[in-house]
Design a protein around this nucleic acid. Structure first.
Lengths: 125, 125
DNA sequence: AATAACTGTTTACAGTTGTAAATGAATCGT
DNA sequence: ACGATTCATTTACAACTGTAAACAGTTATT
């Protein structure tokens, strides 16, 4: 279990796109991420480069271009970012955090049911 | 409703301490934040200075020292940081985020009850 | 009064981030 | 075969971050 690299906000956009479409070329990512974030092609490429350097992405060469894939698990990355956020912004109190998001966000009735189920589980332990 | 300044991770530690003990002197903050984060006194002072400059803190002079208070609301700051985190890390899906934290974190039975109540409310609307 | 102990202010400095242009190498269309 | 296009790599650059030491002014101590 090595160190997880730190992923910046902008880089999260890239990582999420890669996790979704893996393996994927820079061109494809640019087509999606550029418009969605107002980034130039060069900007997207910079992020890709940095993420490879950080060890968050890896690639396989295919002709003159790369097929990018994630080199770190989304699970673990989400977990780490979440822990850090929880601790900074909510002082580590999961209760306040969850309360905040339930109050402020939208939830489908399926999600609400799912949450009830999880709370049940949590309680019974 | 002006712009909310961006608060960095380290700065959140400071802001949280100020929100809790407002108004508070640098000395008091150093006593608490120093050990808790392994920061030297100078480091804490730097953060205070930056936060004042960013408009996140303000102060009232008291002899040769300052009594610091928050100049921005915790509510709004938490909301902004939360929105940004939700969007970066969970692609804006409140459901996944809440699920994640409920699964990964600790909740007291009071908090669980509170959440059930909130879910109820949410549903009935 | 002189000095020690605090305060806040300035300066430092390397690493990260957001944003991209410039450059060089490979490939594709004609 | 050659110019146009497409890739990845390098270089740029200012703002923000984490971490603090240096400096200057004020207050408290001896």
């Amino acid at each position: 279990m090595g160190e997880q690299p730190d992923i910046s906000n902008a880089e999260w956009q890239v990582m999420n796109a890669v996790w979704e479409g893996q393996p994927v070329t820079a061109g494809e990512l640019i087509k999606v991420l550029g418009p969605a974030n107002g980034w130039s092609a060069a900007t997207v490429r910079t992020f890709l480069h940095r993420l490879v350097k950080k060890g968050a992405l890896e690639y396989e060469q295919d002709g003159n271009r790369y097929l990018y894939s994630a080199a770190i698990s989304k699970q673990r990355s989400v977990k780490q970012a979440s822990r850090s956020f929880l601790s900074s912004v909510f002082g580590g109190e999961t209760g306040s955090l969850v309360t905040h998001f339930v109050k402020a966000g939208k939830l489908t009735s399926e999600e609400i049911d799912e949450l009830r189920r999880l709370l049940q589980e949590k309680e019974s332990k």
